[in-house]
Every structure is written in C-alpha cells, then in structure tokens.
Write a protein that binds this DNA or RNA. Structure first.
Lengths: 197, 197
DNA sequence: AATAAGTCAAACAGTGATGTTCGGGTTGCC
DNA sequence: GGCAACCCGAACATCACTGTTTGACTTATT
C-alpha cells in the first residue's frame, strides 16, 4: 500500500523531491560500482533510511529503472552534442568516441545490473536508443565509402560498444591511464572501420 | 571435517571419480549459463544429491576452481595446437582465432563467475596463463613489423579477448550465426593489428 | 560375502537479502 | 501555529542460499 498520500497540488514536498534526486544520483554510482548493491547499500550511500528509500521506490527494480532513465537521457544528450550526423564520418566518429567514453564508465556497470534484474527485452529497449545514433553514423560512413562495408553494421556497432565498455573497465581496474584512453580507442576503432586499401 | 576416508590405495572408488568428472562437466555448463548458479542447481544438473556434491567439493569456490582448472587446461591445449609461434604472425593469428573462439562461449560465463566469487588476484592468475600465448604472438608480430606498434601490447591483448568474448555472446543471444563468426572476427581483429599504411 | 566407501533425503543452523508494519519524531507548507 | 507530509530506527515475516549432521541405503572392491 502507498504510505505516501498525494497532496493537493499533485506534486510532492520539496524535501521529498530533493531526496529522490539524491537517491537516483547515489544509486547510479552504486550500481556502476557493484551491480549487486542491496537496497541497504543504496540507502546508506544516499544518506537516508531504508524505509524512506522504499517509500519512494516500491522495489529494487524501480530504483534501477529510474537510474537507467536518467542515464539514458544524459547519454543521449552527450551523443547529440557531438553532432554525429555532421561532417566526414571518420571525424564525426572520432568526436563521438572522445566525448562518449567517460560516460561508459558509469553505464558499463549499469548494463550488467540491468541484465541481471530486468528482462532481456527491457534491457534491449534501453540499450537501443543511444546505439541507434552510432548505427546511423556507421551506416552513413559505409554508404559514403568512408567505412568498410564488408562487415555487418550490427557487428560494427557491437564492436564499438564492447571496446568502449572494455576500455572503461581497464581504467577502473587501474590497468590503463585515463588520459590515453581517448586516443587509443580512436586509433583502434578507426582501424576497424577503415576500408581495406 | 572430511567425511571421505582415504582408502589404502590412495585413490577413490571408481563411481566416485566418475561422479566427480560428471560434476565438473555439468558445473562448467552451469557456470557458463548462469554465473550465479547455486550448489543445488549444480547438483541437479549433475543428477546427484546436494550432499554428495558437498562431499567431493567442500565449498562452492572449490567447484569453481575445479571447473577453471579443467577449462584452462583444455584451453591451453587448443591454443598450443594452433602453433601460434610458427609462421607469419598474421597467419598464425588467424589460425588462433579460428580455433579459439568456440571455446570462449564457455569461458566467457566462467570468467564472470570467477570474478564474483574469487579474489581479483586469483582470477588474474587463471586468466594470464592462456593469454600469455596471445601476448607473445602479438609481441612477435610487432617486432617483425607485421602488426602495428603504436598501440600497447596489453591493450591489443585485451581487445582480442574482449571481441572474442563479445562475439560468442552474440552467438549465444542469437544475433549472429555461428558459421560467420570465424571470418568476421578474423577480419575485425586483423584490421586492428594491421600496421597503418 | 563381508567391509569400507559412497550416495542421498530430510532436517538443522546461520546469514543476508527483500519488502512491510509500527510508532514516534521532523519539517515543509498553508 | 497547526496539519499533513515526510523521515527513520526497530522489528517482523519470507525467502533463497550455504554448509553440516544424521541415519539408512547401495555399490565397488577384496
């Protein structure tokens, strides 16, 4: 049952909305660090009681969904800011990589958390939205002859996602320096996309 | 305490050894499918009682270690059969990919199971053994001028592992046909390794 | 055929998670 | 100032898992 009565305005009290924002933000870090975080862990990280957490999000899945919604929105903004539809494909792609990979350090952990707690369909629905931009760019590059066309677009998209993910994992594990990642990823992925001479 | 007395010969009874083999084999599939399998799940998959399972492997970690030992041994054989130290690096590498990738479908799930249950050090120790072959091959290729040398060897090794892993995941998810994987992986990874003209 | 080794179901204790309820204490808001 | 919305600790019921013990049963080995 809802312990939370709706107040006349339809909107929650200011401190409640502040706490919700705090929860989503803290939970994002928590899920990224450990996809198996408990509700206790999230509540503690947010500096709130477990009961309060449950009063805003009836279940763990709901927290996760809220986190995913927020991250996807943020991610879409970052991608669109890189204007992947403008300019030569290779340059647009380089821009995209450079601006995207730091985001993936967050999103990487979320992805495995989502895979464990949500259905495959729902995960894909979240995942597809930002990836569609990458797909369009690669497709455009292939049609303009800037990218190799003898490999399926889907595979190339997967490759991009996989290597971004891997690289942020390496940084998190301390095996790669963050300042090199952009350059290394750009070189590696452009090598994959470059047409064979 | 050991519930199992040592018999004079030092060796276990025939049915016991058969069951141990069955357990390791069933557990391998179980861990690959779901890194969080319970001991009940493993026992059921092996067609044995839970108590029997515990009598052979005192803890879940021990089962996992046994599975890893067996898989690594098998993997090392497969790698060495591809003779990565002979012939031109690019050809040796192609041979390696073609013979290795099916193995990764198994090993992928194990890797995440290991990461969750074992210390990072122990995981690395298992992981390093087969990867050393790949590292040597890439290193040789760089020194002979067959592979690009402007990217760190470690990163290239990680890339290889990551894409093999990703590809077998795509096959498992039904998004890629198994018969194309070898060719696609070969093209993709040789593009990463090829020196820039 | 006798013995030791192995198997197994049922039941136990312990742990750690999810969600829920209760009651008293705070605090935003009109 | 007063009320409703909100916060929160403590305690509860469930559930799923790990390991362990007991005692009876079956089977390999000599």
């Amino acid at each position: 049952m809802a312990t939370q009565g709706r107040r006349p305005g339809g909107r929650k009290r200011a401190d409640a909305e502040r706490n919700i924002a705090t929860i989503v933000s803290a939970a994002t870090e928590c899920f990224a660090r450990d996809p198996d975080v408990s509700m206790s862990g999230i509540a503690k990280a947010a500096g709130l009681g477990r009961v309060t957490l449950y009063s805003h999000f009836p279940s763990r899945e709901d927290v996760l969904r809220a986190v995913l919604d927020a991250s996807i929105a943020e991610g879409t903004d970052v991608i669109e800011a890189a204007a992947p539809h403008q300019g030569p494909p290779a340059e647009a792609f380089a821009r995209l990589i450079r601006s995207c990979w730091p985001m993936l350090s967050r999103f990487g952990g979320l992805h495995t958390a989502a895979q464990r707690a949500l259905t495959a369909d729902e995960v894909r629905r979240y995942h597809d939205e930002p990836m569609a931009h990458v797909e369009r760019l690669i497709d455009r590059g292939q049609k303009e002859g800037a990218f190799r066309a003898d490999l399926p677009v889907d595979w190339l998209v997967t490759t991009v996602y996989s290597l971004l993910h891997t690289a942020s994992g390496e940084v998190a594990a301390g095996r790669m320096a963050a300042e090199n990642v952009g350059e290394i990823l750009e070189k590696t992925l452009l090598a994959v996309l470059r047409p064979i001479s």
